[in-house]
């Protein structure tokens, strides 16, 4: 008989860490990425790009778990995330 166990490596495994990268000049300010970031990493920047759109900025970059949803929901190919190396 199997029992549900508490993972023994719970302390050792850390959730994925990501880094969000924004290509500001491609952004048209729809804010989909901000709305649908499950970790609320992003907020609308006060500055704007050459076309006059406010682009997102990472206000809590350390919370990014590299889920790529901002990348998928962005209609402009203006944001993506990459895996962040675990810091020593």
């Amino acid at each position: 008989m199997k029992f549900w166990r508490k993972p023994l490596d719970l302390a050792a495994v850390r959730p994925a860490r990501g880094r969000v990268v924004i290509i500001e000049e491609r952004c048209k300010g729809c804010s989909f990425c901000i709305e649908y970031c499950s970790r609320e990493v992003l907020a609308l920047s006060e500055s704007f790009n050459r076309k006059g759109y406010h682009f997102p900025k990472a206000i809590k970059p350390e919370l990014c778990v590299n889920c790529h949803f901002c990348e998928a929901v962005c209609p402009e190919f203006a944001i993506f995330s990459v895996e962040e190396e675990a810091q020593a």
């Binding site: 209609p75 402009e76 190919f77 203006a78």
Partner: peptide, 30 residues
């Protein structure tokens, strides 16, 4: 300029594209 993971499939020299802010076509395209 940062390289988006889909840039190799995009004609990046034509971006930004013509679709309006919040248009869903870009999402479907991605």
């Amino acid at each position: 300029p940062p390289v988006h993971p889909q840039d190799h499939l995009l004609r990046t020299d034509r971006l930004p594209h013509i679709w309006c802010t919040g248009c869903g076509i870009g999402i479907v395209f991605g």
